[in-house]
Amino acid sequence: MRPFAYRRPADARAAVEAALDAPRAMYLGGGTNLVDLMRLGVAEPDLLVDVAGLPYDTIRETGDGGLEIGGAVRNSDLAAHPAVRRDRPMLAQALLSAASGQIRNAATVAGNLLQRTRCAYFQDVSKPCNKRIPGSGCPAIEGDHYNLAILGHSAHCVATHPSDMAVALTAFGAAVHVEGPGGRREIGMPGLHRLPGDRPEVDTVLDPGDLITGLTVRPLPFAARSRYRKVRERASFAFALVSVAAALDVEDGTVRDCRVALGGVAHAPWRAERLEEALRGRPATEGSYAEAADAELDLAEPLRDNAYKIPLARKVIVRTLAELGG
């Protein structure tokens, strides 16, 4: 890999300043994705700013039933937290469905959000990729895309976002805390991750130097009945073909509220807003779930070899909601 400098700032402000010091600075969390990309030559930072040791490694329950999650919290610790397991099973399940135990022990929450697509072309520097080299082309559109996007893609990029955790957080509408050159701000999810459009090289709305310090997951009592369902060829250690995070609030046989987000289908974790809208106030039946799923999946534009994801997503959405609906 290309030689790089390494710094370990004492606090967030120092980290942001350090990151602005070098033209290709990157933050280092658990390194489970970035170090791989450096070995592959996909990422070539000239400076690594190690933020894993900053004091953002705690999970705090707020008085109103919400959660404040530090950006440096390890994925395993978040999955094991009682307030996650008890009140937000879809988040715990999403975390535990991802990667391997070793990787979850190292990976941070902020790093998980900012991991890059696993599109094979993106990871191979001997081939073109608009996300890696803007304007070089997207071989996946005509090439191998069986596990790439069906929603929200563009003529420039059909990659998917690989995170499971981010799908559950998108269903929750988590708020991302950012410390940046211009101070602190919050970004809601969805909203952190972009769709590719004509600038697929930009994954998120973050600006240079922006550091994710944590997240707020506001209270969502009905998420105590929630679920994350991930479909993949092998039983573990694989990215989703399709995944569904869903929470359902049913009263007297009617859907009062719901949250649904999809993974493995788009450049960003995909909040199924049309589905949610179509389902609120409807009877909690498989027929309603299927109609609502169709309302969302009508937007899908499959590529030559990934149309299977539409019936797959539909079936898995319906089943997940049916299991939650009792």
């Binding site: 094979a120 191979d124 090439g143 092998r234 250690f237 990215f239």
Partner: peptide, 14 residues
């Protein structure tokens, strides 16, 4: 194309 163990899926313990 799928030239690593993240993409070439040998069975895992599960």
């Amino acid at each position: 194309l799928n030239h690593d163990l993240a993409q070439y899926h040998v069975p895992v313990n599960a």
